[in-house]
Protein backbone atom coordinates (compact mmCIF):
# COMPACT_ATOMS: atom_id res chain seq x y z
CA UNK A 1 0.00 0.00 0.00
CA UNK A 2 1.33 3.43 -0.87
CA UNK A 3 1.64 5.68 2.13
CA UNK A 4 3.37 8.53 0.35
CA UNK A 5 3.17 9.20 -3.34
CA UNK A 6 4.93 12.05 -5.05
CA UNK A 7 3.77 13.09 -8.49
CA UNK A 8 5.54 15.37 -10.97
CA UNK A 9 7.25 17.35 -8.23
CA UNK A 10 9.21 20.34 -9.53
CA UNK A 11 11.39 22.88 -7.79
CA UNK A 12 13.74 25.37 -9.36
CA UNK A 13 16.22 27.63 -7.62
CA UNK A 14 16.85 30.72 -9.74
CA UNK A 15 16.34 28.93 -13.04
CA UNK A 16 18.27 25.81 -12.05
CA UNK A 17 16.02 22.78 -11.78
CA UNK A 18 16.83 21.10 -8.49
CA UNK A 19 13.93 18.67 -8.81
CA UNK A 20 12.32 18.10 -12.20
CA UNK A 21 9.07 16.21 -12.74
CA UNK A 22 10.04 13.77 -10.06
CA UNK A 23 7.62 10.99 -9.16
CA UNK A 24 7.92 8.05 -6.80
CA UNK A 25 6.08 6.37 -3.98
CA UNK A 26 6.87 4.85 -0.60
CA UNK A 27 4.95 1.81 0.61
CA UNK A 28 3.81 1.51 4.20
CA UNK A 29 5.81 -0.64 6.60
CA UNK A 30 8.74 -0.68 4.20
CA UNK A 31 12.11 1.04 4.02
CA UNK A 32 12.43 3.10 0.87
CA UNK A 33 15.82 4.55 0.05
CA UNK A 34 16.37 7.61 -2.09
CA UNK A 35 19.85 7.62 -3.57
CA UNK A 36 21.76 9.51 -6.19
CA UNK A 37 25.08 11.26 -6.75
CA UNK A 38 25.89 14.50 -4.93
CA UNK A 39 23.67 17.34 -6.04
CA UNK A 40 21.01 15.01 -7.39
CA UNK A 41 18.33 16.82 -5.36
CA UNK A 42 17.66 14.21 -2.69
CA UNK A 43 17.73 16.60 0.24
CA UNK A 44 15.61 19.05 -1.75
CA UNK A 45 12.97 16.34 -2.12
CA UNK A 46 13.18 15.78 1.63
CA UNK A 47 12.79 19.46 2.37
CA UNK A 48 9.86 19.63 -0.04
CA UNK A 49 8.15 16.77 1.76
CA UNK A 50 8.73 18.33 5.17
CA UNK A 51 7.55 21.69 3.81
CA UNK A 52 10.70 23.58 4.67
CA UNK A 53 10.80 24.81 1.08
CA UNK A 54 7.82 25.39 -1.20
CA UNK A 55 7.33 23.35 -4.35
CA UNK A 56 6.76 25.02 -7.72
CA UNK A 57 4.37 22.35 -8.95
CA UNK A 58 3.40 18.74 -8.50
CA UNK A 59 1.83 17.01 -5.56
CA UNK A 60 2.86 15.11 -2.46
CA UNK A 61 0.04 12.89 -1.26
CA UNK A 62 0.34 11.33 2.18
CA UNK A 63 -2.59 9.25 3.41
CA UNK A 64 -4.88 11.06 0.93
CA UNK A 65 -3.74 14.46 2.21
CA UNK A 66 -1.87 16.82 -0.07
CA UNK A 67 1.10 17.91 2.02
CA UNK A 68 1.67 20.98 -0.12
CA UNK A 69 -1.31 22.61 1.62
CA UNK A 70 0.05 21.92 5.09
CA UNK A 71 2.16 24.10 7.34
CA UNK A 72 5.55 22.63 8.39
CA UNK A 73 4.56 22.16 12.03
CA UNK A 74 1.39 20.29 11.05
CA UNK A 75 3.33 17.36 9.58
CA UNK A 76 4.12 15.96 13.00
CA UNK A 77 0.42 15.78 13.75
CA UNK A 78 -0.11 13.89 10.51
CA UNK A 79 2.44 11.36 11.71
CA UNK A 80 5.52 12.44 9.79
CA UNK A 81 8.75 13.07 11.64
CA UNK A 82 12.24 13.65 10.36
CA UNK A 83 15.92 13.93 11.20
CA UNK A 84 18.43 16.28 9.66
CA UNK A 85 21.56 15.80 7.59
CA UNK A 86 23.52 17.92 10.05
CA UNK A 87 22.35 16.66 13.43
CA UNK A 88 20.06 19.22 15.07
CA UNK A 89 19.99 18.75 18.81
CA UNK A 90 19.48 21.74 21.08
CA UNK A 91 22.51 22.16 23.29
CA UNK A 92 20.79 24.67 25.56
CA UNK A 93 19.02 21.85 27.38
CA UNK A 94 19.83 18.34 28.62
CA UNK A 95 19.57 15.31 26.35
CA UNK A 96 16.36 14.06 27.94
CA UNK A 97 14.62 17.38 27.29
CA UNK A 98 15.76 17.19 23.69
CA UNK A 99 14.12 13.83 23.33
CA UNK A 100 10.99 15.05 25.13
CA UNK A 101 10.55 17.78 22.53
CA UNK A 102 9.85 14.95 20.11
CA UNK A 103 6.60 14.41 22.02
CA UNK A 104 5.59 18.06 21.85
CA UNK A 105 2.44 17.37 19.85
CA UNK A 106 1.29 14.74 22.33
CA UNK A 107 0.89 17.43 25.00
CA UNK A 108 -2.14 19.62 25.65
CA UNK A 109 -2.48 21.95 22.65
CA UNK A 110 -3.01 25.21 24.56
CA UNK A 111 -0.20 27.57 25.46
CA UNK A 112 -1.92 29.87 27.94
CA UNK A 113 -2.99 26.99 30.18
CA UNK A 114 0.66 26.24 30.93
CA UNK A 115 1.05 29.69 32.47
CA UNK A 116 -1.49 29.01 35.17
CA UNK A 117 -1.10 25.33 35.73
CA UNK A 118 1.98 23.59 36.85
CA UNK A 119 0.29 20.26 37.49
CA UNK A 120 -0.60 19.93 33.80
CA UNK A 121 3.02 19.89 32.67
CA UNK A 122 3.96 17.85 35.72
CA UNK A 123 1.64 15.01 34.69
CA UNK A 124 2.47 15.26 31.01
CA UNK A 125 6.20 15.41 31.56
CA UNK A 126 6.13 12.29 33.71
CA UNK A 127 4.62 10.25 30.87
CA UNK A 128 6.77 11.97 28.27
CA UNK A 129 9.95 11.36 30.25
CA UNK A 130 9.22 7.65 30.57
CA UNK A 131 8.55 7.44 26.88
CA UNK A 132 11.70 9.38 26.03
CA UNK A 133 13.78 7.13 28.25
CA UNK A 134 12.22 4.12 26.56
CA UNK A 135 13.16 5.35 23.10
CA UNK A 136 16.66 6.35 24.20
CA UNK A 137 17.08 2.80 25.43
CA UNK A 138 15.57 1.57 22.18
CA UNK A 139 18.21 3.52 20.27
CA UNK A 140 20.96 2.04 22.43
CA UNK A 141 21.65 5.09 24.59
CA UNK A 142 20.46 3.75 27.90
CA UNK A 143 23.58 4.84 29.79
CA UNK A 144 23.37 8.36 28.36
CA UNK A 145 19.95 9.30 29.73
CA UNK A 146 21.33 11.90 32.15
CA UNK A 147 23.97 13.29 29.80
CA UNK A 148 24.21 16.67 28.19
CA UNK A 149 24.45 17.00 24.42
CA UNK A 150 28.14 17.87 24.56
CA UNK A 151 28.94 14.58 26.27
CA UNK A 152 27.65 12.53 23.36
CA UNK A 153 29.87 11.35 20.53
CA UNK A 154 28.70 12.31 17.06
CA UNK A 155 27.36 8.84 16.33
CA UNK A 156 25.40 8.88 19.57
CA UNK A 157 23.94 12.26 18.64
CA UNK A 158 22.67 10.69 15.43
CA UNK A 159 21.00 7.92 17.40
CA UNK A 160 19.56 10.45 19.83
CA UNK A 161 18.04 12.39 16.97
CA UNK A 162 16.40 9.23 15.69
CA UNK A 163 15.10 8.51 19.19
CA UNK A 164 13.58 12.00 19.25
CA UNK A 165 11.88 11.34 15.93
CA UNK A 166 10.20 8.29 17.46
CA UNK A 167 8.74 9.78 20.64
CA UNK A 168 5.59 11.08 18.98
CA UNK A 169 5.02 7.57 17.57
CA UNK A 170 4.89 8.68 13.94
CA UNK A 171 3.88 6.37 11.09
CA UNK A 172 6.35 7.82 8.64
CA UNK A 173 9.96 8.70 9.40
CA UNK A 174 12.23 10.66 7.10
CA UNK A 175 15.94 10.10 7.72
CA UNK A 176 18.34 12.45 5.97
CA UNK A 177 21.74 10.75 5.64
CA UNK A 178 21.72 9.10 9.06
CA UNK A 179 25.02 7.30 8.40
CA UNK A 180 26.98 10.40 7.37
CA UNK A 181 30.01 10.75 9.65
CA UNK A 182 29.56 7.37 11.32
CA UNK A 183 32.26 4.68 11.49
CA UNK A 184 31.51 1.18 10.12
CA UNK A 185 30.59 -0.19 13.54
CA UNK A 186 28.22 2.66 14.26
CA UNK A 187 26.71 2.27 10.79
CA UNK A 188 26.03 -1.37 11.51
CA UNK A 189 24.36 -0.37 14.77
CA UNK A 190 22.28 2.15 12.85
CA UNK A 191 21.20 -0.52 10.35
CA UNK A 192 20.02 -2.72 13.20
CA UNK A 193 18.13 0.19 14.73
CA UNK A 194 16.40 0.95 11.43
CA UNK A 195 15.30 -2.68 11.10
CA UNK A 196 13.99 -2.54 14.66
CA UNK A 197 12.01 0.59 13.77
CA UNK A 198 10.60 -1.11 10.69
CA UNK A 199 9.51 -3.98 12.91
CA UNK A 200 7.35 -1.47 14.82
CA UNK A 201 5.19 -1.18 11.66
CA UNK A 202 6.70 2.12 10.65
CA UNK A 203 7.48 3.41 7.19
CA UNK A 204 10.93 4.82 6.59
CA UNK A 205 12.19 7.00 3.79
CA UNK A 206 15.93 7.34 3.88
CA UNK A 207 18.41 9.41 1.91
CA UNK A 208 21.82 7.82 2.17
CA UNK A 209 25.23 7.63 0.54
CA UNK A 210 26.43 4.53 2.36
CA UNK A 211 25.61 1.90 -0.27
CA UNK A 212 26.30 -1.03 2.04
CA UNK A 213 23.68 0.18 4.47
CA UNK A 214 21.19 1.01 1.72
CA UNK A 215 21.57 -2.36 0.02
CA UNK A 216 21.21 -4.22 3.31
CA UNK A 217 18.12 -2.62 4.73
CA UNK A 218 16.05 -1.21 1.86
CA UNK A 219 12.98 -2.87 0.43
CA UNK A 220 12.95 -0.49 -2.47
CA UNK A 221 15.49 1.94 -3.88
CA UNK A 222 14.69 5.03 -5.90
CA UNK A 223 17.57 6.59 -7.80
CA UNK A 224 17.60 10.21 -8.91
CA UNK A 225 20.13 12.14 -10.92
CA UNK A 226 20.19 15.83 -11.84
CA UNK A 227 16.80 16.23 -10.18
CA UNK A 228 15.16 13.59 -12.32
CA UNK A 229 13.92 10.08 -11.75
CA UNK A 230 16.47 7.56 -12.97
CA UNK A 231 15.45 4.12 -11.77
CA UNK A 232 13.66 2.21 -9.03
CA UNK A 233 13.57 -1.34 -7.87
CA UNK A 234 14.85 -3.90 -5.41
CA UNK A 235 18.49 -3.51 -4.26
CA UNK A 236 19.71 -6.29 -6.53
CA UNK A 237 18.04 -4.75 -9.59
CA UNK A 238 19.55 -1.36 -8.86
CA UNK A 239 23.03 -2.83 -8.53
CA UNK A 240 22.68 -4.32 -11.99
CA UNK A 241 21.13 -1.23 -13.59
CA UNK A 242 23.43 0.26 -16.22
CA UNK A 243 21.97 3.78 -15.96
CA UNK A 244 22.62 3.85 -12.24
CA UNK A 245 26.19 2.65 -12.65
CA UNK A 246 26.95 5.28 -15.26
CA UNK A 247 25.35 7.99 -13.12
CA UNK A 248 27.58 7.09 -10.20
CA UNK A 249 30.79 6.23 -12.03
CA UNK A 250 30.43 8.32 -15.18
CA UNK A 251 30.08 7.25 -18.81
CA UNK A 252 32.66 5.02 -20.43
CA UNK A 253 33.16 7.48 -23.24
CA UNK A 254 34.50 10.11 -20.90
CA UNK A 255 37.18 7.88 -19.47
Amino acid sequence: MELLSIDKLTKTFGGIGAVKNFSFSADSNRITALIGPNGAGKTTVFNLISRIIKADSGSIIYNNINLLNQKPHRLMQLGISRTFQNVVLFDNMPLIDNIMIGGHIKCHPGIIKYLFSFSLSWKEDKILREKSEYFLEFAGLKDKINSSIAELAFGQQRLAEIARALVSEPDFILLDEPAAGLNPKETEQLGELLCKIKALQKTILIVEHDMNLVMNISDKIVVMNFGEFLAEGKPADILANKDVISAYLGDDELC
Partner: peptide, 16 residues
Protein backbone atom coordinates in the same frame (compact mmCIF):
# COMPACT_ATOMS: atom_id res chain seq x y z
CA UNK B 1 14.48 26.97 23.74
CA UNK B 2 14.25 24.84 20.62
CA UNK B 3 13.07 27.65 18.35
CA UNK B 4 15.72 29.87 19.90
CA UNK B 5 18.42 27.69 18.30
CA UNK B 6 16.75 26.43 15.14
CA UNK B 7 13.31 27.48 13.96
CA UNK B 8 13.22 25.05 11.05
CA UNK B 9 14.01 22.07 13.23
CA UNK B 10 11.53 23.27 15.83
CA UNK B 11 8.79 23.42 13.21
CA UNK B 12 9.72 19.96 11.96
CA UNK B 13 9.21 18.73 15.52
CA UNK B 14 5.65 20.00 15.50
CA UNK B 15 6.22 23.32 17.27
CA UNK B 16 4.13 26.16 15.90
Amino acid sequence: RALHLNEIAAAALGIN
